[in-house]
Design a binder for these strands. Structure first.
Length: 922
RNA sequence: GGACGGUUAGCUCAGUUGGUUAGAGCAUCUCGCUUACACCGAGAGGGUCGCAGGUUCGAGUCCUGCACCGUCCACCA
């Protein structure tokens, strides 16, 4: 047992222990028959990613769960990996190539470009995983998986083929969200509605044949409002509501599209909102999802006026080649020139933005692959029936609501970086005819006659398989097969609410469709036991979003996002871990402030010093097992504080069990903090100081008890602060054999601890708690009294007490020395009568008088006593009112009534005593 | 337009099925380098629990309505 230095320094200790853990393969998980399985799948960070505060919170929580599971004796494994992140990675490498070599991906061609991306990935990918090591993440690194690994890719393609076989995947020309910058389709979830300042243009469309309005006045044109005049060239109709009296008589007539000038029909459609604008809608089937639907209903022609890159197409006939935003201005000017622009008023509306490229997306008609979501009803059922539980629970409502309204998922992306869709088209044939399509994992046997689909899959269409594809699905053999069967369904998924739709819901559907006993798939509804086997995880822990101290989102542009590695350097990984979990209220956004995580670092130092003090207090005993420590304890030596401490220790184990059962981690850190700092350090260790200086036997007994508390506390604290606890575990000699790790130890349950205490006659005496509470109250009253006379630290203060015999027995009994030490007094004497001129305060163990050499400030004393009397009087009044209420006495539970009575009596006694003291002053 | 959160001390948040005097950390003030820790110790001040009703012997906690803040969903051009 080497000596500890004065202040805790995290840096060297953390680096040393992490290496030790890696060397010993301490994080390796494996099938262990007879043990409960517990797996966590890391939400795979983008391979291009850098660690940010969200990762810190998220991964600290996962590490806490997995480390706790190990201590509980489960077969635990935390599965790490990274996501290829299609658009994000491709965009990043493209940008790099453009700035460094001045070439675009098209200049290079598919193969060469992908070569560059892989090269980048090999060189820089996975930095984030190294960063996680600094945080202390106990992932089973040998399992690290990348979503484009060969095995994983096979799983992705297999899933595609299976779902295609089951008729859930189809190709179609549909309206999709198109990103003109990335030049790919996006799913609905990748589009972020964003408020935009623009204009609402009000314009005239001339009637081909002048007529009259609904009141019989001459009518030469219709007024129409739009926010997008640049799509006028794509107008193929004008629509009004079928029951709109202003316009219904015009249905079937024609108006001129302003440019290129051409007649278009006036149609009637329910979709039109009579109250919006003029109640007339220009219909542009190629550029609006709703308009497209109208076009379908009315068999309208479709004129696509935009190119893939957002410039105006040749089909528009005007502004060809102009960017869409420039074209908007040009179209507006053209309307004005024609005298058809009535006004352009500032207008705010919601525009869908590309999540990645941050530009407005275009609704665009294109050929894409779509997936009908599988097992939607079952996916709802597993959550509503509690097979999968959200924490906090209200997220399940969001989840269920989304599942109730989903559209088919556009899974094709016009990118190169990703899983190329395993579909081949017969050369030169119609691609939309299924007869000309070949779908398989390995491709056709005569590849020369086929062209493979150019598109890749949406990244989420690969990561939705994560919980089972990582284990070698679909054709896991041998050990891999055993592992999948043993560890699936996994334990808890820890993630942010922002990807409940992207990922959580989809993983559940994928698991329900593709795992388990596939032979029962045709059943109309899968039995609940089958669902229980197919769910990907049992619990979903949703973390809040980390914001800055002002509540703003963290962003690069604001520069308000701290570098976690700086924070680790500043507070230690252990400090940061404790701090971030401690301030993360369940399910709410977190206002992050460096100041708020200091608590974690300070706590490390407190723990360190408490252990250091233990070393300084006396010789080490045999700490190699709980039994060895308990053997050093004897019932005969236990005083009230010892009993209370043991009771609290058991209680802490119980609290921890409850927190884990409820996934309440902030409360967990609070319990640990409160127990250690206040109960153990501030009261128990302080109280024990006098005992440590007494006889060697008493000292060793007291230190044995401290050794027990420290041992159990290190085990409980370890999931949150793994480094410092491992270090102290070693330094205090808790290893059963030389070199054993804390994390390979089995943590006793509250029940087990209770049983082993009882077996040795060490069961905590419940009465001790009240006694300790009374003494602590006495101490606090005495300290307050001293502080009021600025004697806070004068250890030679003398107290006199007037009290009954029972109280004096406590004050003068075996706790007498402890009590003097805690109160900071050299003497506590019993007084028969009130000493003259001494300030006084009332405690549960009698009235305390402070022996002051000089005269007291009578006026100040009066003020103080009067205030105390007022406070007590309120309590007495309330208590009397309550107890004189017959209904209360009759209805309320006995213990509540008893409590109220006891409280009233105590307050009354104190009140009388204070009144007496006040009277004595005048 | 729907739905879901939140509103408790100067700040950030706890507050279990309604039940004794509503708590913690930080910040502020006073005193203290007391033989683990100044990354510390002792003490103090600070809240009519967003507003208005209701249920109840009893409401921060349950019900109704309202206000404000936030988030998600929704094809008003």
């Amino acid at each position: 047992m080497s000596e500890l230095v004065k202040a805790y320094e995290s840096k060297d200790i953390e680096a040393r222990w992490y290496q030790t853990w890696l060397d010993r393969k301490a994080f390796a998980g494996r099938v262990e028959e007879g043990k409960q399985p517990f797996a966590i799948m890391i939400p795979p960070p983008n391979v291009t990613g850098m660690l940010h505060m969200g990762h810190i919170l998220n991964n600290t929580l996962q590490d806490i769960f997995i480390r706790r599971a190990r201590l509980e004796g489960k077969a635990a494994v935390w599965f790490p990996g990274t996501d290829h992140a299609g658009i994000a990675t491709q965009t990043m490498v493209e940008k790099k190539l453009r700035t460094e070599q001045g070439v675009s991906r098209r200049d290079l061609g598919r193969e060469k470009f992908l070569g560059h991306v892989w090269e980048w990935k090999e060189k820089h990918g996975g930095i984030i995983l190294n960063q996680l090591r600094q945080l202390g993440a106990s992932c089973d690194w040998d399992r690290t998986t990348f979503t484009l690994d060969e095995g994983y890719a096979k799983a992705v393609l297999t899933a595609f083929v299976k779902l295609h076989e089951r008729g859930l995947i189809y190709r179609g020309r549909r309206m999709v969200n198109w990103c003109p910058v990335s030049m790919t389709a996006l799913s609905d979830e990748e589009v972020i509605p964003t408020a935009q300042q623009g204009f609402l243009y009000r314009m005239r469309y001339e009637l081909c044949e002048p007529t009259v309005d609904h009141e019989g006045n001459p009518l030469t044109h219709l007024e129409i409002c739009t926010t997008r005049p640049e799509t006028i060239m794509g107008d193929t109709a004008v629509a009004v509501h079928p029951e709109d009296d202003r316009y219904r008589h015009l249905v079937g007539k024609t108006v001129y599209r302003p440019f290129p000038k051409a007649p278009i029909t006036i149609i009637a459609d329910d979709h039109v909102d009579r109250a919006f604008g003029t109640g007339v809608l220009k219909v542009t089937p190629a550029h609006d999802a709703a308009d497209f639907a109208i076009g379908q209903r009315h068999h309208l022609p479709v004129i696509d006026v935009l190119n893939a890159d957002g410039t105006i197409s040749a089909a528009a006939g005007m502004f060809v080649g102009m960017d869409r935003f420039a074209a908007r201005k040009a179209a507006s000017a053209e309307l004005d020139r024609l005298g058809q622009l009535i006004e352009a008023k500032p207008y705010e509306n919601n525009v869908g933005f590309s999540e990645r490229a941050k530009v407005p997306v275009e609704p665009r008609l294109s050929e894409q692959w779509f997936l009908k979501y599988p097992r939607v009803e079952e996916a709802k059922r597993v959550v509503s029936e509690g097979l999968v539980t959200f924490h906090p629970p209200h997220w399940s409502k969001i989840y269920l609501h989304w599942l109730g309204n989903i559209q088919d998922w556009c899974i094709s992306r016009q990118l190169w970086w990703g899983h190329r869709i395993p579909v081949w088209y017969r050369k030169g044939a119609d691609r939309n005819d299924p007869a000309n399509q070949h779908v398989s994992v390995d491709g056709p046997s005569d590849p020369q006659n086929w062209d493979q689909e150019e598109d890749v899959l949406d990244t989420w269409a690969s990561s939705w398989l994560w919980p089972f594809a990582c284990w070698g699905w679909p054709d896991a053999q041998g050990e891999a097969k055993r592992e999948l069967e043993f560890f699936y369904p996994t334990g808890v998924l820890v993630t942010g609410f922002d990807i409940i739709f992207f990922w959580v819901a989809r993983m559940i559907m994928a698991g329900l469709e593709l795992t388990g006993d596939q032979s029962v798939n045709s059943a109309a509804e899968l039995p609940i036991e089958e669902l229980r086997k197919r769910i990907p995880f049992k619990d979903v822990y949703i973390t809040g979003l980390i914001r800055d101290a002002l509540g703003r989102k963290m962003s690069k542009t604001l520069g308000n996002s701290p570098d976690p590695l700086d924070l680790i350097a500043k507070f230690g990984a252990d400090g940061l871990r404790f701090g971030i979990v401690n301030i993360a209220p369940s399910g709410q956004d977190i206002k992050f402030d460096e100041k708020r995580v200091e608590i974690g670092k300070h706590f490390c130092n407190k723990l360190w010093n408490a252990c250091r003090f233990r070393q300084m207090s006396g010789p080490a005993g045999d700490n190699r097992s709980p039994a060895a420590i308990l053997a050093r304890l004897s019932p005969a030596h236990l005083d009230a504080y010892d009993h209370w401490m043991l009771a609290r220790l058991v209680e802490l184990h119980r609290d921890a069990e409850k927190c884990f059962a409820e996934f309440d981690m902030p409360n967990y850190t609070n319990s640990l903090y409160q127990f250690f700092w206040n109960d153990f350090c501030a009261w128990y260790v302080e109280a024990a100081k006098s005992k440590v200086q007494a006889s060697p036997a008493q000292r060793d007994h007291c230190l044995a008890l401290q050794d027990l508390v420290l041992r159990q506390f290190l085990l409980l604290q370890h999931p949150v602060q793994p480094f410092i606890t491992e270090e102290l575990w070693e330094k205090l000699g808790y290893a059963a054999n030389f070199g054993d790790l804390l994390q390979q130890t089995r943590l006793e349950t509250a029940a087990e601890l209770t049983a082993s205490l009882a077996a040795l006659g060490l069961a905590p005496d419940p009465a001790a708690r009240a006694r300790v509470a009374a003494v602590n109250d006495f101490v606090t009253v005495a300290r307050t009294l001293k502080a009021q006379f600025n004697l806070g630290s004068k250890r030679d203060s003398i107290l006199s007490v007037t009290c009954d015999d029972a109280s004096w027995a406590i004050l003068s009994g075996d706790l007498a020395e402890t009590l003097r030490r805690l109160a900071g007094c050299s003497q506590v004497n019993r007084a028969a009568t009130q000493p003259d001129g001494a300030p006084a305060a009332v405690s549960p163990l009698g009235t305390i008088y402070l022996d002051l050499a000089g005269a007291i400030d009578t006026a100040a004393e009066k003020t103080r006593l009067t205030k105390e009397i007022e406070r007590l009087a309120k309590i007495v009044t309330a208590g009397e009112a309550k107890l004189s209420n017959e209904k209360f006495v009759a209805t309320a539970p006995a213990n509540i009534v008893e409590g109220a009575r006891a409280q009233l009596n105590e307050a009354k006694a104190k009140l009388d005593e204070n009144k007496r003291l006040l009277a004595g002053l005048s």
